[in-house]
Computed example of a mutant assay.
Amino acid sequence: MAQLTDDCFASNTLLSVDAAEALIGTRIPPLVGEEQVALADALGRVLAHDLHVPLPDPEGARFVTNAPVLPHAGGRRVQEDASHAFGTVNTPASRLDSNARLARGSTPERVVVLPAGRRLRVTDIGVAAALGCASLPVVPRVRVGVFSTGDELSAAGGARGPAQIYDSNRFTLLALLARLPTETFDLGIMPDHAGESSAALQAAAANHDLLLTSGGVSVGEEDHVRAAIEQSGRLVFWRLAVKPGRPVAMGVMRCAATGFPGKPVLGLPGNPVAAVVTFLHLARPLVLRLAGAAPEPLPRFPVEARFNHRKKVGRREYVLVRLRPSLTTPLAEKFERVGSGMQTSLTESDAFAELDEVTTAVVPGDAVQVLPFAALF
């Protein structure tokens, strides 16, 4: 069970993205425990212990490919490269160390093949199978409860009132979480009432490792998530120096059933693009930290800007762009229909151009970093 340390802080000062990620990485401990899962079910899970080299393979000269090299043997020739003419076999010359490798038993004992904290990939599953593993010890999935907030939201598939919109953020967040080592729980739409918000968060804290909300963290009269966190726990930080995504609240909730004070809750903005940006920088590293996973930097690569853009110093900014191939560096064109509330802007663009805190302007020809959606989603 994770518990934030008491030296966390909250103030009205805008917190930088790097500072927020560092706070998560240093003050939130991983979940405790492990479970054994079949190799077929281990993809994407976090390895609980180092995987070492097992006993050496049995040696024998019956299988030519795996045969031990005889002492004082010269270079090895590949049969496929040999040619036969006039009773003579000809092979190309080779180095003494070519076409051979150390036997597994020749490697030092206790060599780590896969380290603890690694989120298992397809190739890792193959390695584990090659070592004879039928199952692996992994960290339990992080149990994440997801709320949307707001009386203006209507559940998809239901009737929509005259001043309502269909709730989309909750399903976006659940889909993003599905790519992480989580077990997710759809907790529906939280109403815009202070007492009900606090009670809902308290009750949910009893059954989840992390609570994730969307909306209700700004300064409006009906934005109750931040106040609910302060009333039923404590606020860690509020407001991030990023655009889009400034109104973010992170704190810890007391569990209504046990009084345990350490269940993290993260309140993301209600605007869809802002919710995705802050998920990537806060919810994603928070889940990985709870899961005991090694830090995984977001995928980035450089492109050449083909747009003009001005921004304020001191905050990080994300601009939706479309990518175009080039003979050298890919080109990034600004997605002109801007607005963090436009859900379709994420499907009609290819990446976020990431403009750091010291940048004030971008002009065509500038080198910028992008976060490609294909690798993120």
Score class of each variant (00 low, 15 high):
V144Y: 09
L153G: 04
A178V: 08
Q164M: 00
L153Q: 03
A178C: 09
V139C: 12
T182P: 11
L180H: 11
M190Y: 10
L180F: 06
A175N: 13
L176V: 01
S148N: 05
R170K: 13
G188H: 00
M190P: 01
R141Q: 14
D167V: 13
A178G: 08
L177D: 08
L187E: 12
A178K: 04
A175C: 01
G150E: 07
L177R: 10
N169A: 07
D186L: 08
A156D: 15
S154L: 08
D151M: 01
A159F: 07
L173C: 04
R143C: 09
D167Y: 07
G158D: 11
Q164A: 06
T172Y: 13
V142A: 10
S154Q: 06
A156K: 14
T182I: 15
Q164Y: 05
R143V: 13
G158T: 15
I189L: 03
S148F: 06
V142F: 01
Y166W: 11
L187F: 03
N169L: 06
S168R: 14
G150I: 13
L177G: 03
R179S: 14
M190H: 05
T182Q: 03
S154H: 01
G150R: 00
P162V: 02
T182M: 08
D151H: 01
M190S: 09
F171R: 13
R141G: 07
A175L: 05
T184G: 05
T182W: 05
L173P: 00
V144K: 02
V144T: 12
L180T: 15
D186F: 03
L187G: 03
I189K: 02
A155H: 10
I165A: 01
D151P: 09
I165W: 05
D167R: 09
R160I: 10
E183M: 11
L180M: 14
P140M: 07
A163K: 08
A159M: 11
L176P: 07
G157V: 12
A155T: 15
P181M: 06
S168E: 14
F147D: 05
A155K: 10
D186C: 08
